[in-house]
Amino acid sequence: MFLKPQCLLRSRISMASRERLIHQYVRETFPDRNSDPLPNTWTAPLDALHGHVRHLRRDAAIRLVQMARGGPRASAGRYLGIPPGPLHATTLKVRTWQKVPDNAKAYQEALRQVAEIAVSEGRRGS
Results as ranks from 00 to 15, higher is better:
Phe2Gly: 14
Leu3Cys: 03
Lys4Gln: 15
Gln6Lys: 10
Cys7Lys: 01
Arg12Ala: 10
Arg12Glu: 13
Met15Asn: 12
Met15Trp: 10
Glu19Val: 00
Ile22Trp: 14
Gln24Ala: 15
Tyr25Leu: 09
Thr29Glu: 14
Phe30Val: 03
Phe30Leu: 13
Phe30Cys: 08
Pro31Asp: 06
Ser35Gly: 14
Asp36Gly: 10
Asp36Val: 12
Pro37His: 05
Pro37Ser: 09
Pro37Cys: 10
Leu38Gly: 00
Leu38His: 02
Pro39Arg: 12
Asn40His: 12
Thr41Ala: 10
Thr43Phe: 00
Ala44Trp: 06
Ala44Phe: 03
Ala44Glu: 11
Pro45Met: 12
Leu46Pro: 04
Leu46Gly: 04
Ala48Ser: 15
Ala48Ile: 04
Leu49Ile: 00
His50Gly: 05
Gly51Ser: 03
Gly51Thr: 03
Gly51Ala: 14
Gly51Val: 05
His52Asn: 14
Val53Thr: 10
Leu56Glu: 05
Arg57Asn: 09
Arg58Trp: 05
Arg58Tyr: 04
Ala60Asp: 02
Ala60Gly: 01
Ala60Lys: 00
Ala61Leu: 05
Ala61Gly: 02
Ala61Phe: 06
Ile62Asp: 07
Leu64Ala: 02
Val65Gly: 06
Ala74Leu: 10
Ser75Pro: 00
Ala76Cys: 05
Gly77Ser: 13
Arg78Glu: 13
Tyr79Ser: 11
Tyr79Asp: 08
Leu80Pro: 15
Leu80Val: 14
Gly81Lys: 03
Gly81Asp: 00
Ile82Gly: 10
Pro84Phe: 10
Gly85Val: 04
Leu87Gln: 15
Leu87Arg: 14
His88Trp: 04
Ala89Gln: 12
Ala89Gly: 08
Thr90Lys: 01
Thr90Leu: 00
Thr91Asn: 09
Leu92Glu: 04
Leu92Gly: 03
Lys93Met: 14
Lys93His: 15
Val94Ala: 13
Val94Arg: 03
Val94His: 09
Arg95Val: 02
Thr96Leu: 09
Thr96Pro: 03
Thr96Trp: 03
Thr96Gly: 07
Trp97His: 05
Gln98Leu: 15
Val100Asp: 09
Val100Cys: 11
Pro101Gly: 01
Asn103Gln: 15
Ala104Lys: 03
Lys105Arg: 08
Ala106Lys: 15
Gln108Leu: 14
Gln108Ser: 15
Glu109Met: 13
Glu109His: 14
Leu111Asp: 04
Leu111Pro: 02
Leu111Gln: 07
Arg112Met: 11
Gln113Asn: 14
Val114Ala: 09
Ala115Met: 08
Ala115Gly: 07
Glu116His: 10
Ile117Ala: 09
Ile117Glu: 02
Ile117Met: 11
Val119Glu: 13
Val119Pro: 01
Ser120Tyr: 02
Glu121Met: 12
Glu121Ser: 08
Arg123Tyr: 08
Gly125Asp: 00
Gly125Asn: 09
